[in-house]
């Protein structure tokens, strides 16, 4: 079927629109990346440039001069992201599946109990006391367990599962398959897009989290990268009047440090993401069917 003029116009406009969107999105990111390697004077002289006239990596040197701590912290972050996301998905998918069965008798009660926790909670102090009494304080598991299942993510996943055509499930049941088999061999394979999405949400959550580590972990060897990087940003940013007199702060430019920090934290995620896109292939191929 040939395209009408209207459709061709639409395609052209769409493409231009999307390119514009990209430029608007891209600029600030390039801004941060490019200016992280500029000298302070350069930045001051060219407020909107994104390419340095002279390269200056002192910001990165400062960030990595924390020596073994940053490298170790990266290991913690990566470990936490992988192990954490895996545990998250295991439990979240299981629960989402259970609650997607419309004839499961406890479905309503469980869903309400879970949804309730999305709005009401005891607060920081009781959580802190709980973590201490469970022996999780200062233990790697505290980076994973308290956030094991996100009610929000779980409900989204549940609704994806609920949209799988009942017919497939019915015929499997008639063949005598147990729920476990239905889960593993029908639901999961049909939900790769949803699973990848929710995994991404969890993974990014783990990668960016710092508050739980800051509250529940006091051993610097167990701190993920974000805690250190925040520390660096705030240390250089604060007009620190509390100093032992003779210690002269010879920091590299605050801006360099802050931007280097941002690059160091977001670059890995930006690099990994395209590989996850394989799982979104369906969405991409669907749209490319010529009409």
């Amino acid at each position: 079927m040939k395209q009408t003029l209207g459709e061709k116009l639409f395609d052209a406009c769409n493409t231009i629109m999307l390119i514009l969107v990209c430029l608007v999105m891209l600029y600030p990111v390039l801004f941060v990346f490019g200016r992280s390697v500029m000298t302070d004077l350069d930045r001051a002289a060219h407020p909107f440039a994104i390419w340095p006239t002279a390269w200056d990596i002192s910001g990165y040197k400062y960030v990595f001069s924390s020596g073994s701590y940053i490298v170790n912290a990266y290991a913690i972050t990566i470990l936490r992201t992988i192990a954490g996301t895996f545990c998250n998905m295991l439990f979240t998918a299981a629960l989402a599946f259970v609650l997607s069965n419309r004839d499961y008798p406890l479905r309503g009660a469980f869903t309400m109990l879970i949804a309730f926790t999305m709005w009401f909670g005891g607060g920081l102090i009781p959580m802190f006391l709980l973590v201490k009494s469970l022996g999780l304080y200062n233990h790697f598991a505290v980076l994973i367990l308290p956030g094991l299942i996100s009610a929000w993510n779980m409900l989204i996943l549940r609704n994806f599962f609920m949209q799988i055509p009942q017919g497939v499930i019915e015929s499997a049941k008639m063949d005598g398959a147990s729920e476990l088999v239905i889960f593993l061999r029908i639901i999961l394979p049909l939900s790769t897009a949803a699973l990848a999405t929710i995994s991404l949400f969890y993974a990014v959550g783990h990668w960016n989290s710092w508050f739980d580590a800051m509250i529940y972990v006091n051993d610097r060897d167990l701190w993920p990268v974000q805690v250190f990087l925040r520390e660096i940003i705030h240390n250089t940013n604060l007009n620190d009047m509390i100093r032992s007199d003779a210690v002269v702060e010879v920091n590299p430019p605050a801006q360099s440090v802050i931007m280097a920090t941002i690059v160091v934290t977001t670059l890995p995620i930006l690099c990994v993401y395209p590989f996850l896109q394989r799982y979104f292939v369906k969405g991409i191929t669907v749209g490319s069917i010529k009409g």
Binding site: A94, L95, L99, G122, I125, L129, L130, L134, P146, L148
Partner: peptide
């Protein structure tokens, strides 16, 4: 499948609710 998950909510969400 549901049991360990609901256990999580009991321990980490409902126990601290006295707060």
């Amino acid at each position: 499948l549901a049991l360990p998950c609901m256990l999580y909510f009991l321990i980490f969400k409902y126990l601290p609710m006295y707060g």
